[in-house]
Design a protein around this nucleic acid. Structure first.
Length: 437
RNA sequence: GGAGAAGUCGCCUAGUCCGGUCUAUGGCGCCCGCCUGCUAAGCGGGUUGAGGACCAAAAUCCUCUCGAGGGUUCAAAUCCCUCCUUCUCCGCCA
């Protein structure tokens, strides 16, 4: 949810943000108009209600007298007159209330559609208009090493680590089994990621992955992204696509004391995505799947700290993939590709040798106060007044994609996989994974 | 899943039977002030959150908020319905 006060004071900024995202700026004017109708309706209602209350205070004692039979004829007549007035007033109040509610609903409906303000430093444009900020590491020259790299599915089959055929048999396309060393790799990555997060001051969390509409809505996943969310109709529950959802909603309706910020959480959870509208994309392998496990970083900060926190998240992600000795680049996502909640987003794209391309492995977003307004998560400023917090999220490790880039980048000519030093303690000290006989 | 009890402005709590003077009681905690070698005690005041009016700002005022949403009524913390949550007992289960 946007801050209506900023919209009132600086509608130009809101219109510019809409334009940058490729959205309709006219919505902003519709909102401003709905806002003033809402305020006018509210004033009418308040006035009518105050009069009604006042009248009620006269009726009460008088009726007491009449009921007990102690009232004079004048008093009985007065009560009748007051009651007639009250009846008339009640009609006014009902009408004013309906008008107020309608105006409020229209206003909220419009507000909920509008994405967060973009950070003006984010590159303007669509999906392909990102800016590459940095390259880290150098892709291997397999030709010079004298062999053709195998893709992660071939390597997965060779190591009996990834089984997509049986995944499809049991659950359908875009499902997989991790077996043997594949499963071990998942635990190794998750444990390494959690240890990393803990060292950076994050509290480890295993959150619920089935949530109510409110949590989904509050984090901005029931808007444009709704088609990618699994919904359980019988229970009206949603399967989360990321632990960002339950982590953000963790402090829903709370006021977080100023000195308790930033609060940093690292969530481990399965993630479920319908991948509607991505037919034909990444059909082979486990790059794009309906379910995967992920370690996600999440922070609640105050307004002035959010941007620094976002940078911190990027540094942690950078350090993580650097330590895995995987070449990657960092991109600054373009405004048209930010999603509903983010003001700015950085992705790490790791090198996938067999695709001769960089593919997204992490994403960190600064959602400023957009989610916290929807979830009513606040803190107090110096004067003690409440203000919304800011939320920042970022992937530490999304398991299947991390496995893909690890296998492909560290494969050797005989099909074995070199284990980067940081991961060795999590794999029983093995320095190389050799295919089972 | 079944039966029962409960949910009040940080925490505890009065009020609900019998609707209006509830503009929600009292205690604890916390904050400010007074008093005071210091501290404690004592005394006085303040202490839910949201929206709005006025405004440079403060003060002030209005409305909403008694788990949530509906309903009855001139009027709902209070009566009725639905839902949520918690607790107790039973059943089932990793």
């Amino acid at each position: 949810m946007l801050d209506i006060r900023i919209l009132r004071e600086d509608p130009e900024r809101a219109r510019a943000s809409q334009v940058a995202r490729g959205e309709d700026p006219a919505v902003i004017d519709a909102i401003l108009s709905a806002d003033s109708s809402r305020r006018a309706a509210s004033t009418v209602f308040d006035t009518a209600r105050a009069a009604q209350k006042e009248l009620g205070r006269s009726i009460g004692p008088l009726q007491g007298k009449v009921k007990s039979g102690k009232a004079t004829a004048d008093e009985t007549a007065e009560l009748d007159a007051l009651m007639a007035q009250a009846t008339a007033l009640a009609a006014q109040v009902t009408q004013a209330e309906d008008a107020q509610r309608a105006a409020e609903e229209q206003f909220i409906g419009l507000m909920a559609q509008v994405p967060n303000f973009v950070d003006t430093r984010a590159p303007v444009g669509g999906e392909d208009d990102f800016v590459t900020l940095e390259h880290v590491g150098t892709p291997r020259d397999f030709a010079a090493e004298g062999f053709e790299p195998k893709d992660h599915l071939d390597l997965g089959a060779l190591h009996k680590a990834i089984d997509v055929e049986r995944g499809a048999k049991v659950s359908g396309s875009r499902f997989y089994y991790l077996t043997g060393v594949g499963a071990e790799l998942e635990f190794a990555m998750v444990n390494y990621a959690m240890d990393t997060a803990r060292k950076h001051g994050f509290i480890p969390v295993v959150p619920p992955t089935l949530v109510r509409a409110e949590a989904m809505e509050g984090t901005g996943f029931l808007g444009q992204a709704a088609e990618n969310v699994y919904h359980l109709k019988d229970d009206d529950m949603y399967l989360v696509g990321t632990s960002e959802v339950p982590l953000a909603a963790y402090h829903m309706d709370e006021i977080l004391e100023r000195d308790s910020l930033p609060r940093r959480y690292a969530g481990f959870s399965p993630c479920f995505r319908r991948e509607a509208g991505s037919h034909g994309k990444d059909v082979r392998g486990i790059i794009r799947v309906h379910w995967f496990d992920k370690v996600e970083m999440f922070a609640f900060t105050n307004l002035t700290e959010a941007e620094a926190e976002h940078q911190r998240f990027l540094e942690i992600e950078r350090g993580f993939f650097e330590s895995l000795e995987i070449p990657f680049r960092i991109i600054d996502t373009a405004t048209g590709d930010l999603g509903l909640s983010a003001a700015r987003k950085f992705d790490i794209e790791a090198w996938v040798p067999t695709q001769n391309a960089y593919r997204e492995v992490t994403s960190t977003s600064n959602c400023t106060d957009f989610q916290s307004r929807r979830l009513r998560i606040r803190t107090r400023d110096e004067s003690g007044a409440t203000e919304p917090v800011c939320t920042v999220n970022g992937t530490l490790v999304a398991v299947p994609r991390a496995i893909v880039v690890l296998l492909e980048n560290h494969q050797q000519i005989d099909g074995s996989i070199r284990v980067p030093a940081v991961l060795q303690p999590y794999l029983g000290g093995r320095t190389v994974l050799t295919p089972p006989q």
